[in-house]
Amino acid sequence: MSSAAMKADERKVLKKVFWRSLTLECSFNYEKMQALGFAYSMIPVINQFYKSEEERAAALTRHMALFNTTPHVSPFIMGIAASMEKQNAETGDVDPASINAIKVGLMGPMAGIGDSFFWGTFRVIAAGIAVQLAQQGSVMAPLVFLLLFNIPHFLVRYFGTFWGYSLGTKLLENVYESGMMTRISKMATMVGLMVVGAMTVSMINFSTPFVVNFGGAEVGLQGILDQILPGALPLGLTLFCYKQLQKGRKVNALLIGILIFGILGKYLGIL
């Protein structure tokens, strides 16, 4: 399905998603990260395709799950999610859990691509050129910087929305008939869990400068941990939080607890 074959109402909804996607990080926070921004962007889709209050509420709740990716490439994922929501609204044969599974499966790789392109490439090139101009005192510097960065940014953002949607629709059309969807969402869960496992190591910043004294010989605790199980501390903390959540502990209690632990830990020299 090419984007030209999209119906007028679909195009209109996707344009709204594109505009709303700009505000993805307006409500960024430590509990859900970009979840509310994602849900905010999906509101036009949900209102367009679902007719009953219950279905709308279920869809809104679904998109309040933690989400985090490079903002500039997020509309691509929104487009895919929109196509799945439409399919679900029309046929009802989409496993709603698979929509989140695909979102989570995609946010890692899209962040990988997005970070390296937008943070690592476009921004650095644009800043490099602009800083040179600024050092010569040219008032063009900020303008050149913004243009060099934002031309690729808005091309990717705008076409990403539509491309994600048609890709999602096309995949779903082929995939649904053959009952492949359960398999794909199972696969997405596998990939998603692996990405969360990897992010546990790379995105939680938890190490200790604590030194153990073995009868005069000083050994860094972190060094011992790294030899046995690198990333043991982030893993332990995540599993601890997971257990607490399962016990029904409130998320805010966890957040405040970690905050106090951070300040005390730094004070006592174990962080």
Partner: peptide, 10 residues
């Protein structure tokens, strides 16, 4: 640096 653990746990 520690707070993302809560998100991953969720």
């Amino acid at each position: 640096g520690l707070l993302p653990a809560v998100g991953f746990a969720l």
